[in-house]
Measured scan of single mutants.
Amino acid sequence: MVQRGSKVRILRPESYWFQDVGTVASVDQSGIKYPVIVRFEKVNYSGINTNNFAEDELVEVEA
Rank of each mutant, 00 (worst) to 15 (best):
R4A: 14
F18M: 01
V38A: 00
Q3E: 09
I10H: 03
Q19W: 10
K33P: 14
A54I: 03
N52M: 09
N44I: 04
V38E: 01
S30A: 08
G22S: 02
F18A: 04
T23I: 13
V8M: 00
E41C: 13
I48K: 11
M1S: 14
Y34V: 03
E57F: 02
S26E: 14
A54Y: 06
R12F: 07
E60Y: 10
E57I: 01
V21W: 04
S30L: 06
V36L: 04
A63G: 12
V36M: 03
G47A: 02
E41H: 07
Y34H: 09
G5E: 03
R9H: 02
I37Y: 10
P35F: 11
E14T: 14
E14C: 12
S46I: 11
Y16T: 03
I48Q: 15
F18S: 04
Y16S: 05
E14I: 04
A54T: 06
N49S: 09
S6R: 07
V38Y: 00
N44D: 15
F40C: 06
S26G: 13
R39H: 11
V2I: 15
V21P: 00
F18G: 02
V38I: 03
E62V: 11
E55K: 09
V8E: 02
F18Q: 04
V24M: 02
V24D: 01
T23P: 02
Q3D: 05
G47N: 06
V36E: 00
V27M: 06
Y34Q: 08
I10F: 01
G5A: 02
K7Q: 08
Y45V: 14
R39L: 11
S15Q: 03
Q19D: 11
R4L: 13
A54Q: 07
D56A: 09
Y34D: 05
E41Q: 08
L11G: 03
V21Y: 06
D20V: 09
T23L: 08
K42T: 14
D20N: 07
T50S: 10
K33N: 08
I37P: 00
D28E: 09
E14Y: 09
R39K: 12
P35M: 10
E57R: 01
Y45Q: 15
G5F: 00
I48A: 13
I37K: 15
N44Y: 07
D56Y: 14
V59W: 08
N44Q: 06
Q29V: 11
E55P: 14
K42L: 06
D28G: 07
I32H: 10
I10T: 01
L11F: 02
R9L: 09
G31H: 10
V36Y: 14
V43D: 11
V59Q: 14
G31A: 11
N44M: 05
V2E: 01
N51H: 13
P35R: 09
S30P: 05
N49T: 07
S26V: 07
D28R: 06
P13A: 12
R4W: 03
L11M: 11
K7R: 13
R9C: 12
S26D: 14
G5I: 01
W17F: 03
E55Y: 15
L58A: 01
K42I: 07
A63Q: 13
N52Y: 10
S15F: 05
F53S: 02
R39G: 04
M1Q: 13
V8T: 02
D28F: 04
V8D: 07
W17I: 03
W17Q: 01
K42A: 06
K7T: 09
E62C: 14
D56L: 06
I48M: 14
Y16C: 10
R12K: 08
K33F: 07
V38W: 00
N52W: 10
S46Y: 14
P35K: 09
V21S: 01
V27G: 02
N52E: 09
A25M: 15
L58T: 02
V2T: 05
E62I: 10
I48V: 14
V38Q: 00
E60P: 13
V8P: 01
D20M: 13
S15A: 02
R4N: 08
Q19I: 08
S15N: 03
S26A: 13
E55M: 15
G22A: 01
V27E: 02
L11V: 07
D20I: 10
Q19N: 14
I32A: 12
R9D: 02
N51W: 15
E62R: 11
V59K: 09
V36Q: 00
M1E: 08
G22T: 03
L11C: 11
G5W: 00
S15M: 04
V24C: 07
G31S: 09
G31E: 11
N52Q: 10
S6Y: 00
N49W: 08
V61G: 02
V43A: 14
V24G: 03
L58V: 12
I48L: 13
E57S: 03
D20W: 08
Q3F: 00
G22F: 06
P35T: 08
K7F: 07
E55L: 15
F53T: 01
R39F: 12
P13S: 09
S15C: 10
D20K: 07
V21C: 08
G31F: 08
A54C: 09
T50C: 15
Y34R: 08
D56S: 11
Y45L: 15
S46F: 14
S15K: 02
D20F: 09
S30K: 06
V38P: 02
N49H: 07
W17Y: 03
L11Y: 02
G47W: 03
V24W: 00
R9E: 04
V36H: 01
V61E: 06
E55W: 15
G47D: 06
Q3S: 11
Y16N: 03
A54F: 04
F18T: 02
A54R: 12
E57M: 04
E41V: 08
L58E: 00
L58R: 01
R4Y: 03
V61A: 06
A63N: 12
I32L: 10
F18K: 00
G47L: 00
V59M: 13
K33M: 11
I32P: 06
V38G: 00
I32Q: 11
F40Y: 00
S6T: 12
I37T: 15
D28K: 05
V61K: 02
V8K: 04
E41N: 08
Y45E: 15
F18N: 03
Q3Y: 00
R12S: 08
R9P: 03
V61H: 03
K33A: 12
N51V: 11
I37H: 11
E55G: 06
R12I: 07
E57G: 03
Y45K: 15
T50K: 06
R9Q: 07
E62Y: 10
S15Y: 03
Y34G: 02
G47K: 03
V2G: 03
V36A: 01
F40V: 02
I37M: 14
E41G: 06
D28T: 06
S26I: 07
V36W: 05
E55T: 12
Q19E: 10
V2M: 11
T23Y: 08
E57Q: 02
N49V: 06
V38L: 00
